[in-house]
Computed example of a mutant assay.
Amino acid sequence: MTLAYSSGIFQGNEMRKKQVQKYVSRRKEPKKRYRRRSTFGVGLDGEKWVNYLEQYSDEVEQLMKLTPSQRRFYQQGMRAATLIQSIS
Rank of each mutant, 00 (worst) to 15 (best):
A81H: 00
V20F: 04
Q55L: 14
I84W: 02
R72V: 15
G46I: 09
S38G: 02
Q75E: 15
S38V: 00
M15D: 06
S69N: 15
V24I: 13
M1N: 14
V20D: 04
G8W: 09
Q76C: 03
V50C: 01
P30H: 02
T2V: 06
Y34E: 09
Q70P: 02
S86E: 12
Q19L: 05
F10R: 15
K48Q: 09
Q70L: 15
N51S: 10
M64L: 03
N13I: 09
E47S: 09
T67W: 10
Q21H: 07
D58F: 04
K65C: 08
E54V: 11
E61T: 01
R35V: 05
S88K: 14
E14L: 04
R35K: 09
L83N: 02
T82V: 13
R36Q: 12
S57P: 00
G41H: 03
L63E: 11
R16N: 08
V60P: 00
Q85K: 14
V20L: 02
L83C: 06
S6D: 14
A4D: 11
G46P: 09
D45Y: 08
R79D: 15
V60F: 08
R79P: 03
L44K: 11
N51Q: 11
G41R: 06
M64K: 06
R35Q: 05
T67F: 12
D58I: 10
I87C: 04
Y5P: 03
R36N: 12
Q19K: 14
P30D: 04
K32G: 01
Q62T: 05
K18E: 09
L44E: 12
R71S: 13
R36I: 08
N13V: 08
S25K: 15
M64N: 06
Q70A: 15
V50E: 00
R27L: 14
V24E: 05
V42F: 00
N51P: 00
L44Q: 13
S38Q: 00
S6N: 13
Y74I: 12
Y23N: 01
V50Q: 00
R71T: 15
G46F: 05
F40L: 07
P30M: 02
R72F: 13
M1K: 14
Q21L: 00
S69D: 15
R27W: 05
K17D: 08
M78E: 07
L66G: 07
G46Q: 09
G77C: 07
E61Q: 05
L3T: 10
D45E: 13
